[in-house]
């Protein structure tokens, strides 16, 4: 009998193996890795087209070994619709932040969800506009200070945060809508399982799917990466509860 080393975890093959431009501790990298792992595990690398947003993930296409396009701000779901319609057998996902998806791109995401056509959306909710320096987003919590809500967000001055997952789950179009968190190993495992269902909803031709990922922005939150994870648990999750909000029959 001899001893051999068995691989417990190694880098996904569809990951382009570049060092990302993300700040230390930013959970974009975690969400990226889950996408790459699922593309590998589900054998999708040859038929995947990623549609990237304007925001911190604008260069996302650099980090994967599958085809990608870079959309205009907020328009990823429209662009993905054009791509999917021309090649329905391909796997098409958008990757969008909260400013991109829930502010400037709200019309496109709502109508993509309402059409219900099988595209998949990975939605990163980190409560601010990271790329532009930490301005208030549609998901910024009440009381949260940002560079454009310097005294903290108030309903009177800024209105209320938008719960995208719950809102879209009211539509008849979507096949699968969930909110997950990337704050801990256990939640990252759950996030991957939700993303797998979302991918499956498309692969099996069932319909539109979206996974909202509670994420961190240590740089603009002015917290350490570890403190940022704690903030997600203590402050963000109470307003943005985790869970599956829409699961139609056949999604697994």
């Amino acid at each position: 009998m001899a001893e051999q080393m068995k691989v417990i975890y190694e880098r996904p093959r569809s990951w382009a193996n570049k060092v990302t431009h993300y700040c230390p501790g930013c959970t974009h990298g975690v969400a990226h890795r889950l996408v790459a792992e699922l593309v590998d595990e589900m054998g999708l690398v040859d038929k995947t087209i990623g549609v990237w947003p304007v925001g911190c993930a604008v260069l996302g296409y650099d980090y994967f070994n599958f085809d990608s396009v870079e959309a205009a701000h907020g328009r990823a779901p429209a662009m993905a619709t054009g791509i999917k319609v021309t090649n329905p057998d391909n796997f098409v996902f958008t990757y969008q932040g909260d400013g991109d998806l829930a502010s400037i791109g709200m019309a496109e995401i709502v109508h993509a969800a309402a059409r219900g056509w099988p595209i998949t959306v990975i939605f990163i909710n980190n409560g601010n506009y990271g790329m532009t320096g930490g301005q208030m987003a549609p998901t910024t919590l009440l009381g949260q200070k940002t560079t454009t809500s310097p005294l903290g967000r108030t309903p009177q001055a800024n209105g209320f945060p938008i719960r995208v997952a719950e809102m879209l789950a009211q539509l008849d179009g979507p096949a699968y809508i969930a909110r997950v968190s990337l704050d801990s190993p256990v939640n990252i495992r759950k996030a991957k399982s939700a993303m797998r269902k979302a991918f499956n909803a498309q692969v099996r031709g069932i319909g539109f799917s979206l996974v909202e990922c509670l994420s961190t922005c240590p740089t603009n939150w002015k917290l350490t990466p570890v403190e940022s994870m704690e903030r997600v648990r203590k402050e963000v999750m109470p307003y943005f509860p985790l869970g599956e909000f829409k699961v139609v029959e056949g999604v697994l």
Binding site: E3, K6, V7, Y9, H28, V30, R33, P185
Partner: peptide
Amino acid sequence: LICPDIAIELHREVK
């Protein structure tokens, strides 16, 4: 799982 930079790989001895 938590590494945002995909910097960690894991292996284990097996008989």
